[in-house]
């Protein structure tokens, strides 16, 4: 997951924004406490979304209270308590995923990137070992997805659906774990699957220009081979795929009985995903200098 699943701030209400920020701050704090302060670098908005979905499905209501944080001592921000382990689990997920992303970067990168990866490897490895022991289920899910992904990329005729399947299934598992016996289990799985699929394909669309240059695997390249079309045409096809996936997720959200935070989740799924799609496919530079909350 790479930070594509974000809220669309202009349409947000202040209360939803506060909750969003509160979950972000709590996750950040938790990463720092469970691992090291350096682990806060692993935090991305995807994990905030995952935490929001899990929090909104748990029975006990999470409690928010104001507290200060050392990075911005002047402003108080909301801190979430009573989360039944959701935050810890999301923090572990962030660490485990970052470890695999580092390995992936090492394999794909040029000399400079490789050097940076070697430099970072030991601390990340130690944190990963800790996270693995704490949350074996998350570790198994992510590891399975990574190895399936590698197999897919080796395949000669890898379709878009096939390429996205591993990441999508991983998010479906992470999102629906523990809800196996509920009536909405299938809906929740499909929702997670489609959001995961969308995030994977967004990453692929974002990297398209670079992958075309370096020759790395990219699921959208199949459009290229067929008729030798230009990058812009590939983007038009990619837009159709991304919109369909986001539309599927938007349709599925109505079938899940979220206990709370529904406006926040709706904002992310209805508006955030769409505007992010437009931003990535429209002008590539736009996403790079986006400010954080």
């Amino acid at each position: 997951m790479f930070g594509y699943i974000v809220a669309y701030k202009p349409e947000m209400k202040i209360k939803d924004y506060e909750i969003y920020k509160g979950i972000y701050c709590t996750l950040c704090k938790r990463l720092s406490r469970r691992y090291t302060p350096a682990a806060q670098l692993f935090l991305s908005y995807d994990f905030v979304f995952l935490a929001a979905v899990r929090l909104s499905l748990q029975e006990a209501c999470p409690v928010f209270h104001k507290s200060r944080c050392m990075y911005n001592p002047l402003a108080k921000c909301a801190r979430c308590d009573g989360d039944e382990g959701v935050m810890d689990r999301c923090a572990d997920t962030a660490v485990i995923m970052s470890y695999y992303k580092l390995l992936d970067n090492f394999n794909d990168g040029n000399f400079l990137r490789k050097a940076v990866c070697i430099f970072l490897y030991l601390p990340v490895f130690l944190m990963w070992k800790k996270a693995k022991k704490r949350n074996p289920h998350v570790q198994d899910t992510v590891a399975a997805a990574v190895s399936r992904q590698k197999e897919c990329e080796k395949e000669q005729h890898c379709s878009i659906d096939m390429a996205a399947d591993a990441s999508a299934a991983a998010l479906a598992n992470l999102m629906s774990a523990g809800h196996e016996n509920s009536a909405y289990y299938e809906s929740l799985r499909r929702f997670g699957y489609l959001v995961g699929r969308w995030a994977y394909l967004m990453d692929a669309a974002d990297d398209l220009a670079r992958d075309m240059k370096t020759g790395n695997f990219n699921p959208f390249r199949q459009y290229l081979k067929a008729g030798g079309v230009a990058c812009d045409d590939v983007k038009a096809s990619a837009a159709a795929v991304l919109y369909t996936t986001a539309g599927g997720a938007a349709a599925e959200i109505t079938n899940i009985p979220f206990r709370r935070f529904l406006p926040l989740l709706e904002n992310i799924v209805y508006l955030g995903m769409k505007s992010k799609t437009d931003a990535v496919l429209g002008t590539q530079g736009e996403t790079k200098n986006e400010q954080s909350v």
């Binding site: 159709a240 919109y243 369909t244 986001a246 349709a251 109505t254 209805y270 799609t277």
Partner: peptide, 14 residues
Amino acid sequence: AMNRSRSGGYATQK
């Protein structure tokens, strides 16, 4: 239905 969402025309608001 699928064609509509391909062009970005899916429901974005309740």
